[in-house]
Write a protein that binds this DNA or RNA. Sequence first.
DNA 1: TAGCCTCGAGTTCA
DNA 2: CTCGAGGCTA
Length: 669
Amino acid sequence: MDRSEAKERIEELREEIEEHNYRYYVLDDPTITDREYDRLLRELEELEEEYPEFRTDISPTQRVGASPADEFESGEHRTPMLSLSNAFEEREITEFRDRVQRKLGTEDELTYIAEPKLDGLAIELIYENGELSEGLTRGDGRTGEVVTRNIKTIRSIPLKLRSDGGEVPSLLEVRGEVYMEKGSFQKMNERRAEEGKDLFANPRNAAAGSLRQLDPSVTAKRPLNAFFYDTGVVEGREFTTQEELLNYFPDIGLRVNPYAEKCQGIKEAKEVYSKLEKKREEIPYEIDGIVIKVNDFNLREELGAKTRSPRWAIAYKFPPERAKTRIKDIEVGVGRTGALTPVAKLEPVEIKGATISRASLHNQDEIDEKDVRIGDTVIIQRAGDVIPEVIKPITEERTGDEEKFQLPDHCPVCGEPVKRPEGDAIHRCVNISCPARIKEAIKHFGSKAAADIEGLGDKLVDKLVEEGLVESIADLYRLDRKEIANLERMGEKSAENLLNALEESKEISFSRLIYALGIRHVGEHLANVLSRNFADFEGLKEAKKEELTSINEIGPEVGDSIVNFLANDSNLKLIEQLDKVGVKYEREAREDEKILDGTRFVFTGQLDDYTRSEAEDLVERLGGRATSSVSSLTDYLVAGENPGSKYEEAQEEGTEIINEEQFKELIQH
DNA sequence: TAGCCTCGAGTTCA
DNA sequence: CTCGAGGCTA
């Protein structure tokens, strides 16, 4: 065989193999045996070995997995992967329908698509000119991990889109779910048991663990599969309905779930729910409910989205798995804000593979209302399949030995009296030097979104405070190498790492530092807002409550909290000491050009690309001003979808009215 | 003043 | 992830 013959054969084999993959995985209708398939694959491997110049990233041979990586890169989603709002009861589904119809201003029932909600992990694949170029996990919705090489090992995922139906879109981002079948999961665990390896708790964890393998050749051996149900950015084709999308995907080689159904009106969607709930056992993969989506994409656009979820879809979940157990005891924890939280210690039970041994009871009201007592047999569930929750005691099983529980009136850690402000459900230890509060404050300070001090874990903080080495946040920066190395389980090396991390953390942005201080009601977001409105702590300290509350998103409660924090001597001392030990904060490096220079904006209605407050922040960052009502001083009214009464006001005032597009042009963002 | 939307805070397990 | 509560809009 000469070179050009080899090239031809290689291409032929690739096509043939992918064709068989398609027939096997998408159509579920294989035409050759596994042995024949393996033979083709082996032949291709040999040829590629012999003629390395014809190797490519999208050859089926790549599916066996490339060499291990050190870590995953992170990649941004061009459009965020939102999550779905959940419903557990039929009533909530009816409310969903009403909401949707109200927002669209129609009385007519819409067409929906109901699909099973797979219990796997969401991914996004990017096909450029039909070739798989990148695979991303959902991550936090905005940024995920690049798992392209692992994705390629999944045989049912096409490396190249099929194109017999005409042109393939030049850019196609598709979204779907990677999962593991229940049977494959079981077999895999049996094998792992034989090999003495740790078992996976459930198929979901197994799928997630497999996809996040640094060594793709490990992923290649895991029985993963995928269904697709959505798109991200698409260029070169327009979809008008979910139905069209679900019909089109298999044509280009993407698997869609066979249980998806078109529903005329919400009632039919509810029927799909009941039907699938009955079928749940016999479906070969785990599903935890159904997803109901508005079919028409134009309507979807009109409905828009909230920050975390679209308004045009809802997840209708099956009842979560419950279990019966006993409350052995109730412990009390003290948080950063001094909140006393009762935690039930449970007789360990397994739900969905995880062994549950504790569950928060939140506060005294919750305990009283549910009448939960120590020694009670209770029903628990994992809310959202994650966080354990006590539903209710089984009173029939009481023996009379159960004890009612009352939160103590003195802090279990420092012994000072506990207060419960009127109208508040939370008991609080108000002693700001309570060791528990100091510990939590320090942990918060060192956390990722705050000063990000690597190596400063919970255990270490506990020890530092207990040993008396650290009494305040500033003390962290006064630790010396010997002190640290002398602690249990800490050596020279760990001490050095910690010191380095501390040193690095001294350079910090103003907003992170504000957040790190742990001012009540001031989280990441508001810390950011504050850092944009004040240059430094000097400015912030001088701010009166009125000045603070005039800032968007800061109301009386938050204003008070900030003023109080900065009026407190020990807090002021902390800020001073941080400065003394060398913590240098700076306003965010990215100083935007002040192109708007005092221009006043008012927003009304809904914008596509920003939330109201994002748009307002943006304006302020660019040196403009965003106000809430139209006056003669207003330069522009930016009108989004469904503008409110401000629209008419602006017309009366003769204020210039612009749409989102024009706004974007104006700010060039 | 109600209802919607976000943010903050607290939480569990592997 | 969920709950409660603060802030904003209608």
